[in-house]
Design a protein around this nucleic acid. Sequence first.
DNA 1: TCTGGGGTCCTAGGACCC
DNA 2: TCTGGGGTCCTAGGACCC
Length: 444
Amino acid sequence: MFVASGAMAPAQPLRATILHADLDAFYASVEQLLDPSLRGRPIAVGGGVVLAASYEAKAFGVHGGMSGRRARELCPGLTFVGGHFREYQRLGDAMVDVLRDFTPVVERISIDEAFLDVTGSVHLFGPPAGMAAEIRRRVGAELGLPVSVGVATTKHLAKVASQVAKPDGLVVVEAGEEREFLDPLPVELLWGVGPATRERLGSRGIRTIGALAATSPATLQKLLGSAVGAKLGSLAANADPRRIETGRRAGSMGAQSALGRRVVSEQLLRAELGFLADRVATRLRAKGRAGRTVTVRVRFAGMRSVTRSVTLPWAISVTLTLAELGVGLACAALADEPGEREITLLAISVSNLVPESALQLELDLDARVDQQHRPGTRSGAARWASDRAMDRVRDRFGRGALGYGDVMFRSGRGVPDEFRELAEKDAAALPEPGAGHRHADERR
DNA sequence: TCTGGGGTCCTAGGACCC
DNA sequence: TCTGGGGTCCTAGGACCC
């Protein structure tokens, strides 16, 4: 250990100890927990698309994102089950509650995984490896679910360790043994290396993290671009001491719907984008936020997609305004693609988010501009007030109690709302201890 | 029957300003 | 008049993650 002799010691960061806890085959494990007859059998959650597969099914090559048909081909004995989405949320929250018993420094990154910085907890709970074992024991005993845990000196390495630990295992990478652990592992275990990057690295013969770490920064940046190259270089060298972030706010909010194959019509755009805008704007208002940039994505048969966006001088969270902008952007995108008659997906998202308090000052302006450009239409302020009234009715009587007309013309297909909610990042990040559901209104 | 939904970050070019 | 650098914002697209 280095000790400076002068008055000022160099800022030598204390070696942190990070745990990464990751529930195994989460949705599938919950289904097997709820229905004992499914245990030990290959199951998939979903239908048209596999949302999650049990380890028994993974052994046949079934994995998330795969079409149901392909999964059945690979695994003839596969059982499909519908999802119990509320249970996923409840059990994911329950794991985080267990983690918070060891430290308040918990960063939840999705419904089923989180980082913990236990550096300051060692004097209470003993060595990190013991804490990790106790977390696994408690999650197993109290939730009935298998969880894998990685322990290391950095977030990224802890995450790699938990992946290596799966299923239902524990891997501890001691300080000083990082290179030995990382070098033989394939590059795709690094966070940020997907199929495209793996291919590019492979074209240069770089297949292991050790080989990646031995590649010069200049070569990597030439191969992958400056940011990705630099990031990957530091990850491979295990020189990426990222802090645990406990309270992150989303930078954008969006919603999308896969449509099958549909011939474009104004009616279709109005109905679908109306539905999506309603979802997004309602969530924005519930979080007390609004955004300046609206982006629409249109996907065509053949999976090619285009986006169009617009940035407004002020932020919006009004359902009808968002829907109108969305339809305008979609029409603009389609006008540039005269060859495409059929679309397979529509998406809308709002970014450049600001707190709603900033919005208040703009509403008068919004109203004036509205009156100027569309005399006789209801102003932004009036729309906002009526949205708030609708939010309150829905809070009391449920989402289906009230809605805009166009949305009623949507075709019946689509995933359940519960699944959409599950995928929302804020929903996973938010449940603070003791904080119930509150509406923006009640905070003022 | 081609492929669920919600996010983050980066790149590259152009507009615009100093 | 021409040249140049630097910064910021915007738009479209892509890779990646859970």
